[in-house]
């Protein structure tokens, strides 16, 4: 218990003293996670909508792969991205391994299926009569989509929250493809692992508080957006 208390004090001290490194790690974490989730959202929601609304041959297979992807262990994603980005690998010439871009790629791979899967599930649940009613009201294709997105906003924000949770929590792939390089690819989770292995539990605990605070703030924002009061 004493350790947690010490860690808490350390966290406050590090934050208050404006420890530049901690600040940088936190910003990198934010930048990496938010970029990844932004890309996943921009790609994932339209794909989820397409899969959810339309029936086409191969839909079932695609959904199976999406569902497998939702449970894909991040280190598996990390391994394949590492091999892809190796100097000797197919994308080696891009020099992306051990950069934040590589971490973002890995995080997109693990969060995209979640967003596609949960979005398509939400759209599959829309009453076909509702679809017809919206069409009948004279909505253009785009307007139809906007209305449907509004109707499914609870589920879609839940999808984004779930994706973000996974991305913030992820460590294995970030370690593998990012390399935990100081001042560069070090993010909160990888530096926690490192601090633990160095025996600096107080620093690790401090980092965990920062990570939890971030997760809390972001989830809080999204949840309050999701649960905005209904005017009854």
């Amino acid at each position: 218990m004493g350790l947690i208390y010490e860690g808490f004090l350390k966290a406050i001290e590090m934050l208050l003293s404006g420890d530049r490194e901690i600040y940088e790690i936190t910003l990198t974490t934010l930048r990496v996670c938010l970029s990844a989730i932004l890309v996943s959202t921009i790609i994932g929601i339209p794909l989820g909508v397409l899969i959810g609304l339309h029936s086409f041959p191969g839909k079932k297979i695609i959904l199976i792969f999406v569902n497998i992807g939702m449970g894909l262990p991040p280190v598996v994603a990390g391994l394949y991205i590492t091999m892809l980005l190796w100097r000797s690998g197919p994308l080696g010439h891009l020099g992306l391994l051990y950069t934040t871009h590589a971490i973002i790629m890995a995080q997109i791979v693990v969060s995209l299926p979640i967003i596609i899967g949960l979005t398509s599930a939400a759209f599959q649940q829309i009453d076909s009569k509702m679809l017809m009613q919206i069409k009948a009201l004279g909505a253009t294709k785009l307007q139809r989509l906007v209305i449907l997105l509004k109707e499914t906003k609870l589920a879609i924000l839940a999808a984004i929250i779930a994706g973000l949770g996974r991305v913030l929590a992820e460590v294995g792939a970030a370690m593998m493809v990012g390399g935990n390089i100081r001042g560069d690819t070090r993010i909160l989770t990888t530096s926690m692992v490192m601090e633990v292995s160095k025996g600096n539990f107080d620093v690790a605990i401090a980092l965990s508080f920062i990570l939890m605070t971030l997760a809390f703030i972001i989830t809080f924002l999204l949840t309050s957006l999701q649960q905005r009061k209904r005017r009854v």
Partner: peptide, 21 residues
């Protein structure tokens, strides 16, 4: 109302990212 909120949130995302980069 939510449109504006979403917009604000997106702007925040983008600001943070551009600030960092």
């Amino acid at each position: 109302k939510i449109n504006r909120k979403i917009f604000a949130l997106m702007t925040l995302f983008i600001l943070i990212m551009t600030a960092c980069s």
